[in-house]
């Protein structure tokens, strides 16, 4: 009998302590470290490698990873590690640019659709639905075909391809907010519509949008690399990670390191951003 009491007391104590201390995921900690590292690489790539990404050395071509060239060299004798470090900038730039364009365009379309009356909504949403019918990458390819390749155009293409899904999210959230009682209260107070959008709708849509964007960042990295693999991305000698993967495709049998390490970099970055995005999502739900 008395043991039952102590058991209960103990479980309660355990509940109290675990209730307060949230278990930290080691993966999340790794992702956080990675982001700090990434920021440093973006700001000061020179700190991370003594090699130049563009210095060719035909004598040292296709060397496997060793003490001098950590990740080996490519067919022109360029240091793969150095190219990876300098390529980070382009890869991240494309992904962030694409996400910003997607979020911005999506927010604009979504708000227009939600606030612009029934006809505007109908027209915009039919367009969005048609666009959503295409895979994002295909849509981006279409835009690149129209605009031509290159770093900026890839970012724009991916951004446009992302607009429909952001627009849908923003429209849905905005409609919820517009139907809310606090927006009704604002209307009764005589607050002008555009003010209501700025004060109530945008901030309340912003949270879910940031969450979706942080997850979307991951897919933008993959899609960006994908377009670069197809040779539509940055123009040589500039190379993002996708272009590096493409560079090595003829040497996969003999010099796997040229393609594999950039591919790994893409994977790690995507996993990290997705993890962080999910975490944000969970926090938003709570």
């Amino acid at each position: 009998m008395s043991s039952a009491v102590t058991v209960l007391a103990e479980t309660e104590a355990a509940v109290l302590t675990t209730g307060r201390v949230r278990p930290r995921s080691p993966l999340l900690a790794a992702a956080a470290t990675l982001f700090v590292l990434l920021a440093l690489v973006l700001a000061f790539p020179g700190l991370f490698t003594a090699h130049s990404p563009e210095a060719t050395d035909v004598a040292a071509a296709l060397r496997p990873p060793d003490g001098r060239h950590w990740l080996g060299t490519d067919q022109l004798g360029r240091d793969v590690y150095a190219r990876l470090v300098y390529g980070t900038r382009l890869s991240v730039l494309i992904a962030v640019g694409a996400t910003l364009i997607g979020v911005g365009g999506g927010a604009l379309l979504g708000l227009l659709s939600a606030c612009g009356g029934r006809r505007v909504d109908f027209a915009l949403m039919r367009i969005v639905e048609v666009l959503l019918g295409f895979p994002e990458l295909l849509l981006a390819l279409l835009v690149v075909a129209l605009l031509g390749g290159g770093t900026l155009n890839v970012a724009i293409a991916l951004g446009i391809a992302g607009v429909p899904s952001y627009a849908r999210l923003v429209r849905g959230q905005a409609r919820l907010v517009l139907r809310s009682e606090y927006v009704e209260a604002a209307r009764v107070l005589g607050v002008r519509p555009w003010r209501t959008v700025l004060r109530h709708v945008l901030p309340n849509v912003g949270g879910p949008l940031v969450v979706l964007a942080s997850i979307g960042l991951g897919s933008a990295i993959v899609s960006g690399a994908g377009l670069s693999v197809l040779g539509l991305g940055p123009v040589p000698p500039d190379a993002d990670w996708g272009a590096m993967v493409a560079d090595g495709k003829d040497f996969l049998q003999t010099a796997w390191w040229i393609s594999v390490f950039p591919g790994l970099a893409v994977t790690v970055l995507v996993v990290a951003t997705t993890l962080a995005g999910r975490r944000l999502q969970l926090r938003a739900v709570r």
């Binding site: 009682e181 606090y182 004060r199 309340n204």
Partner: peptide, 28 residues
């Protein structure tokens, strides 16, 4: 509109959850 005001049913939904009481009143 100032002349006709409104008290809604659900006090849990009638204020923007992001607003402080000061901002809720400030809007009026």
């Amino acid at each position: 509109r100032a002349a006709v005001q409104f008290v809604q049913q659900d006090p849990y939904a009638s204020a923007d959850p992001r607003f402080t009481v000061a901002r809720v009143l400030g809007e009026a």
